[in-house]
């Protein structure tokens, strides 16, 4: 049951957790209640402005449409890049898969998602310098992916680890930040030469989900 309650955003838990735990102690939850709690957690993420926060807690400010677009499009391009890379045949001359289209798509994806991260870091009320630094590192890494080997690899891993770190430090206001970190760590096992190219897909899906959730969020107008 505690796992289900942990699905709720921190601001929600700060406000309602004690009451909810007390209620659940009085009335042990049925399976139906557990499903209801899971739905409630999803609702709390989608409508975080419903929580009346103590002042000083984190919130996500107004998200610009271009940030949402960069996150969703970037996520889509990660998926397209992974699929294009995986579908590429091994070259008879080099003996390697040389997917130019795949790399071009993924470079664009990395730049777009890094730009979205920079905007998201600015949009959190806490404006963490660590979040801004990791987002900037993502952008540098993304740009280095466009350079020749081995700097390409440095850029790719720099981008992926910075994205994982960004999820850790950006703060609870950003939706699905843990999913971003986990999928970014999975991305570090990416390899263009075999099916591990598909490991970029969860990362792309995470960005699409993050962008979509950020789009439906309304900035908190009231704190008390």
């Amino acid at each position: 049951m505690k796992r289900l309650v942990r699905l709720y955003p921190r601001a929600w838990r700060d406000r309602y957790l004690a009451e909810l735990e007390d209620l659940l102690a009085d009335r042990p939850p049925t399976i139906r209640d557990q499903v209801d709690l899971a739905r409630g957690a999803l609702d709390a993420w989608v409508h975080p402005q419903l929580v009346t926060r103590p002042s000083g807690q984190e919130s996500l400010g107004r998200i610009r449409p271009r940030t949402v677009g960069a996150a969703v499009l970037g996520g889509g391009l990660w998926i397209a890049g992974a699929l294009a890379t995986n579908a590429t045949q091994v070259s008879a001359t080099s003996g390697y898969k040389d997917s130019v289209a795949g790399w071009m798509l993924m470079i664009a994806a990395a730049v777009l998602t890094a730009a979205a991260s920079i905007e998201l870091a600015r949009s959190t009320s806490t404006r963490s310098s660590a979040a801004s630094a990791t987002a900037a590192t993502m952008l540098v890494g993304a740009l280095l992916i466009a350079t020749p080997w081995p700097i390409l690899a440095v850029g790719f891993y720099g981008y992926a680890f910075a994205a994982a770190g960004f999820g850790f430090v950006v703060g609870d206001a950003m939706p699905l930040r843990w999913l971003l970190s986990v999928t970014a760590l999975v991305l570090t096992s990416f390899n263009t030469q075999d099916e591990r190219a598909l490991l970029a897909i969860p990362f792309g899906l995470a960005w699409i989900a993050i962008g979509s959730l950020a789009a439906v969020r309304v900035p908190a107008a009231k704190t008390a």
């Binding site: 009451e19 909810l20 007390d22 009335r27 499903v35 209801d36 409630g40 957690a41 609702d43």
Partner: peptide, 24 residues
């Protein structure tokens, strides 16, 4: 409080109110 509301609603309507729905 929450538990009393849940109990009262269940008595009134015959249907339990889930905790996630209640707090939402």
């Amino acid at each position: 409080h929450g538990y009393a509301i849940m109990t009262d609603v269940e008595q009134m309507t015959g249907s339990p109110l889930g905790p996630g729905t209640l707090y939402g």
